[in-house]
Simulated assay, not measured.
Amino acid sequence: MTPSAGAPATLVMRQDQHPATIIDAFHKGSAFYVVARLNAHGTRYVFRGRPGGKWVEVIENPATGRYRMLHGGVGLRLDQAETAPPGRRHARSL
């Protein structure tokens, strides 16, 4: 599946999930990227497609124009734009 501008998505931030919209999709070299935004004036997040349908957040190096993976960044799910309740807390082992 190839996402396109206007497609719904969900940004996964730790335990929170936020509805978002894909605002751009492009190829750079052999990689495919999408840009998602929380709302009309929200922060933009860039993701690179990985094998198996996984998306990883990337940032651009302004000096070289290359993208690099951002470890511990925001996650992306496509075809969904809904807010889910926060994750469950795990009970401590005694």
Rank of each mutant, 00 (worst) to 15 (best):
L78D: 15
L78H: 14
R68T: 07
D79M: 12
R44K: 10
R66N: 01
P62S: 15
V56D: 03
N61V: 12
E57M: 08
R66Q: 03
R66K: 02
Y67V: 11
E60S: 14
M69V: 14
A63N: 11
G75Y: 13
H71L: 15
R68C: 03
E60F: 10
P51T: 01
G73A: 09
G72S: 04
R48H: 04
L76H: 10
A40C: 00
M69W: 13
G65Y: 12
T64W: 03
R44A: 04
R68F: 06
R48M: 09
G52L: 00
F47K: 05
N61I: 05
T64I: 05
L76W: 06
H71C: 14
T43H: 14
R77M: 14
P51N: 02
F47S: 05
G42V: 00
P51D: 01
G49K: 06
A63F: 11
G49D: 13
A40L: 02
V58F: 06
V46A: 04
W55S: 05
M69Q: 12
D79Y: 13
G72V: 11
V74K: 07
R44L: 07
R68P: 04
V58Q: 10
E57G: 01
G75S: 09
V46W: 07
G52Y: 00
V56H: 04
L78R: 11
G75P: 09
V58G: 07
Y67C: 10
Y67Q: 10
H71P: 15
L78G: 13
K54I: 07
G73P: 11
T43M: 13
V58P: 06
K54D: 07
G65W: 11
T43K: 13
R50T: 05
F47G: 02
N61H: 08
R50H: 03
V56F: 02
R48Y: 02
E57L: 01
A40S: 01
Y67N: 05
G53A: 13
G52E: 03
F47C: 00
R50M: 03
H41K: 11
V56E: 05
G49Q: 07
Y45T: 00
T64A: 02
L78S: 15
G73I: 06
D79N: 15
P51W: 01
V74Q: 03
G73E: 04
H41A: 10
L78A: 14
G75M: 11
G42D: 01
N61S: 14
V58D: 03
F47R: 10
E57R: 08
F47Q: 04
I59H: 14
G72H: 07
L76I: 00
H71A: 15
I59Y: 14
G65L: 10
E60H: 08
R44I: 02
G65I: 15
M69N: 11
V74L: 08
G65T: 08
E60C: 15
H41Q: 14
T43W: 12
E57S: 05
W55T: 04
W55R: 06
H41C: 07
L78K: 12
